[in-house]
Simulated assay, not measured.
Amino acid sequence: MEINFLSLLAAAVSALIIGAIWYNPKVFGTAWMKAADMTEEKMQGANMAKIFILAFIFAFLLAFALQFLTIHQTGALGMVGGDPSLAKPSFEAFMADYGTAFRTFKHGALHGTIAGIFIALPILGTNALFERKGAKYIFINAGYWIVTMAIMGGIVCGWQ
């Protein structure tokens, strides 16, 4: 099993696309700006190229991590030390039988959703509490990451 960089790139791009939709003023953008105490003036001075480049890099790192949560075969590979050529013949037989088991968009989306709820939500929620942000802020941002991680997980897991 090899890392599929094309799927990681596609998953990272999906995070930016979903963000453009999610934070659009006609969706949650206006509510987010109010909850985040963000103004048009604050947004004007931003270096958008830097923001989008870093956002893409962070999304790529997240996609890379999601493959280990969504593709169960990476666990089997880890059991043989990461090098299948050093594994016993039973590993090859196991992978022949189960090498593509649960490698679907649906399965990846399920695990991405679970990761969003149990990883992203608590992290964002904790930060927001200390930043003195309200529930609306938490749920808008966590909602974005739950949906995004579901789509990213689906892409990473289903793309073979």
Rank of each mutant, 00 (worst) to 15 (best):
I53R: 01
G29E: 10
A65I: 08
E92D: 15
L121Q: 04
M48G: 04
I57R: 01
W32Q: 10
F60Y: 02
G81Q: 02
G81M: 15
K106T: 15
I17G: 03
K34N: 04
G82T: 10
K26T: 08
F94W: 11
L124M: 13
A15H: 04
L129P: 02
K34M: 09
G75T: 15
T100I: 12
F105D: 04
T100Q: 13
A87E: 03
G19N: 10
Y23A: 07
P25S: 02
P122H: 10
G116H: 09
L86S: 12
F56R: 07
L69P: 08
F94N: 12
D97T: 09
G125V: 14
N4A: 12
F60C: 00
A20E: 04
N47F: 01
A12I: 07
L110M: 14
I119W: 02
A31K: 10
A49G: 06
L110Y: 15
F94D: 03
T100N: 12
Y23N: 00
N127M: 12
L62C: 14
G112H: 11
S85T: 05
S85M: 14
E2I: 15
L62Y: 09
V80I: 06
T113V: 00
G116P: 12
A15R: 05
L54C: 01
T126N: 11
E40P: 06
S7D: 07
F64H: 00
M48E: 00
M38P: 01
N24Q: 04
T30Y: 02
G19H: 13
Y98R: 13
A109F: 07
H111E: 11
E92F: 14
A10S: 04
F52Q: 04
A101T: 14
I114R: 08
I114G: 00
N47L: 01
A109K: 05
F68S: 13
A59V: 00
H107R: 11
G75R: 05
P25L: 10
F5A: 09
G19Y: 00
Y23G: 06
P25H: 05
F91S: 13
Q67N: 09
T74H: 09
A76E: 14
G19C: 03
L110F: 10
S85Q: 14
I71N: 15
K34G: 01
E40R: 13
I119R: 02
N127H: 13
W32M: 08
F105I: 15
A35V: 08
A11N: 03
F5V: 11
S85K: 15
L124T: 07
G81K: 13
A101P: 07
A36L: 08
G116F: 08
S14A: 14
M43L: 09
K26E: 09
